[in-house]
Design a protein around this nucleic acid. Sequence first.
DNA 1: GGATTTCCTACCTGATTGATAGGGTATAAC
DNA 2: GTTATACCCTATCAATCAGGTAGGAAATCC
Lengths: 159, 159
Amino acid sequence: MKFSTRTRYGLRFLVFLAMHRNGPDFIQLKQVAEEESISMKYLEQIVRLLKRSGLLAVSRGAYGGYALARAPEDITMREVFISLEGSLSPVGCLDGKLTCAKFGHCETFEVWHGLENAMSDYLVKISLKSLVDEYLEKNKKKTVAAIPPAPMERSVINV
Amino acid sequence: MKFSTRTRYGLRFLVFLAMHRNGPDFIQLKQVAEEESISMKYLEQIVRLLKRSGLLAVSRGAYGGYALARAPEDITMREVFISLEGSLSPVGCLDGKLTCAKFGHCETFEVWHGLENAMSDYLVKISLKSLVDEYLEKNKKKTVAAIPPAPMERSVINV
DNA sequence: GGATTTCCTACCTGATTGATAGGGTATAAC
DNA sequence: GTTATACCCTATCAATCAGGTAGGAAATCC
């Protein structure tokens, strides 16, 4: 049970926006794709999911780009994960996708239901801001590095 | 992010054993496969994972079968899930499977790490016994039905 | 020895993941 | 208005994985 690159890349995109709020109003997809070593065309599709969920403010046209629709402290990981994954449920029956012969009298239902709640309860407590703050705290630097890092190898798979 | 049938079927197998402890010492794979509407050959592979983890006592040969290696109250969902999934980690870097360019300075590491812990903390609190007991309580019957249910359609996907 | 049941390995098929590609549409700068 | 830049949408595709099938070897009971 692993989360897909869709969710991992989408989260990284949001973190990128959160960490560059002192910069220009809108951040271009191209910039994020390059600095995060993600295919721009692929990131495009992922970002669309976030936009549909209302997490992003968009400016089209030249010099346009994306920004967070709300303050980072008002965006929870729960919301982000649901936007990207569709739901948090670890089995289909919890979001009504599958008709299971055991539905309604399933011996294992409770553990799946409880697991979803446990994940939800954890993720709702983490905001985009708290995630970024914790990272900055651990890495003992208060601002983003002025000099962007050298481009990474595209072949390396990133979280 | 959905759990595979491997984990779902494996869990159901263990629940089946836990609910039939008043029966014969060893339960045949064939019986479980039929009553749970799972392909016997497929269940075979899944059960092997549980055996390797030491969760099952096995008797080979004629009249052989499987039984729980320990009392149901001593088997946690955490242990079961790890046996079947390999680990609880939602991303590869947490169990060292992927070398990620961001490892060691990853902005999103904390939420993945925290999510794994949240799942682990929940699952370790649920034992095979507590899961079964909760089911029996909700279904208001203290023993397993004497008459086995009619075989279900194989085509229906079960949790 | 024969019947039964677990153990092991290989194989197959369809769905999903992780992209890539190409064009269409909207907007801002000039 | 032109052009450049950026977002938007659909189709395609290779690789991987999920889910399941198949055949036989090894162990055990009678």
